[in-house]
Design a protein around this nucleic acid. Sequence first.
DNA 1: GTAATACCTATAGTCACTAGAGGTTCAAGT
DNA 2: ACTTGAACCTCTAGTGACTATAGGTATTAC
Lengths: 159, 159
Amino acid sequence: MNDQNPEPATTEHYIGIGELARESGCKPETVRYYEQIGLLPSAPRNEGNQRRYTTATIRRLTFIRHARDFGFSVEAVRELLQMADYPAMPCEEVDTLAKRHLAEVEARLARLTSVRDELQRMINQCAGGSVGQCHIIDVLSDHRLCHQTGPHGGADVIG
Amino acid sequence: MNDQNPEPATTEHYIGIGELARESGCKPETVRYYEQIGLLPSAPRNEGNQRRYTTATIRRLTFIRHARDFGFSVEAVRELLQMADYPAMPCEEVDTLAKRHLAEVEARLARLTSVRDELQRMINQCAGGSVGQCHIIDVLSDHRLCHQTGPHGGADVIG
DNA sequence: GTAATACCTATAGTCACTAGAGGTTCAAGT
DNA sequence: ACTTGAACCTCTAGTGACTATAGGTATTAC
């Protein structure tokens, strides 16, 4: 993950931000954003002030993108990157981070599942009449009509 | 009790923003925010410029809170509220909105489930060695090690 | 009367980007 | 060599849905 070499050791092929973005599955804006917040090191520039990357950066960015896809926060990704940068370190911390994240994901899954069940139930009961008799509106108006016992969890958990 | 209500039809009991918030499960700040963006109408004020609510507002706010809990966006909630305000309307639109939302929820569920499986698999394979051999880092570094075929979906879908 | 609590407005901050304005540089074709 | 057009640059502001803070006023309990 240590990759910012403006020195071309051989005729190594440098890529621009567009290709880097394509290769790693994000947008150039996002790459610049990641550089800005320090997830990526400042890229070396060519004569015309444009960022030049090596293929090593594709790997680092893929790592970031992948971790984000897994739902890790940017701060968690920052920690993961730091760990990955020191491969001799024991992986306990990484493991802990992943386990904590798994717990969060499972909690979300549980809530989202109950939301799905409730939505399905609401839709199935809709007789196609007027809004006044609509079960969807009913359920949303009155918590007691829910099959769930507690709250569904904050909206932030889902959306 | 300085009870100068805007509309004292009878001795109906008006409540403050704190009680409204408690009753409906959100914070006073959120109530004011909802008023600001027009999800709640401007509340009448007492002599001291403080918002006074009737119990009807508890229901409306509960509706909003509930719909948000179900993952509906604020804009969707706005639409739902408009529909609920006209009970004679056919509920087709409400139904459509709910169904569209169900589809989104199901897509999220699918992605979140695959993320959970992957995280679990990663954690199970971690032998507790050094970061260099850690499967978690491996999986995050290299997309090909994933059991999933495609991308997991954007981070916005999950977190 | 006083002290604690609840309330008010207005503004800025959060997260993780995304979009736009307004300019410069690069690569390809003529 | 010139021209077009895509890609790139910086800087700033906007998104969604709140949340927090500062600095004040009102209400309530004792």
